Amino acid sequence: MENTFQKICRLEDVRHHFKDKQSILFGGFGGIGTPPGLINVILESGIKDLTLIGNDTGFPNIGIGKLVTQRRAKKVIVSHIGSNPNAGLLMNNGELEVEFCPQGTLVERIRAGGMGLGGI
Rank of each mutant, 00 (worst) to 15 (best):
L38S: 03
L38C: 04
L38E: 07
I39C: 12
I39M: 12
N40D: 15
V41I: 09
V41F: 06
V41P: 05
V41W: 10
I42L: 09
L43D: 09
L43A: 07
L43Q: 11
L43S: 08
L43F: 09
L43M: 12
E44R: 14
S45E: 15
G46C: 14
I47H: 05
I47G: 08
I47Y: 06
K48C: 15
K48I: 07
L50Y: 13
L50H: 14
T51F: 06
L52V: 07
L52E: 02
L52G: 01
I53K: 06
I53C: 11
I53T: 09
G54N: 01
D56K: 02
D56Y: 03
D56T: 02
D56E: 04
T57H: 12
T57E: 13
G58R: 12
G58V: 05
G58W: 10
G58I: 06
G58D: 08
F59W: 04
F59H: 06
F59S: 01
F59A: 03
P60E: 02
P60K: 00
P60H: 00
P60V: 00
N61H: 13
I62E: 12
I62W: 08
I62S: 11
I62R: 14
I62V: 15
G63K: 13
G63E: 10
G63D: 10
I64Y: 03
G65C: 03
G65Y: 09
K66I: 08
L67G: 08
L67A: 09
V68W: 01
V68T: 01
T69F: 11
Q70H: 13
R72Q: 07
R72T: 03
R72Y: 07
A73C: 12
K74L: 08
K74P: 07
K74N: 05
K75G: 00
K75Y: 00
K75T: 02
V78D: 03
S79F: 04
H80G: 08
H80R: 10
G82K: 05
G82L: 05
G82C: 04
S83K: 14
S83A: 14
S83C: 09
S83F: 11
S83V: 04
S83L: 15
N84I: 12
P85C: 09
P85V: 10
P85S: 12
P85M: 11
P85G: 07
P85F: 15
N86A: 10
A87H: 00
A87P: 00
A87E: 00
G88K: 06
G88L: 10
L89V: 14
L89P: 05
L89H: 13
L90E: 01
M91E: 12
M91C: 11
M91P: 00
M91H: 09
N92R: 13
N92W: 07
N92C: 10
N92T: 10
N93R: 13
N93G: 09
N93I: 02
N93W: 06
G94R: 04
G94W: 05
G94E: 06
G94M: 03
E95I: 01
E95K: 03
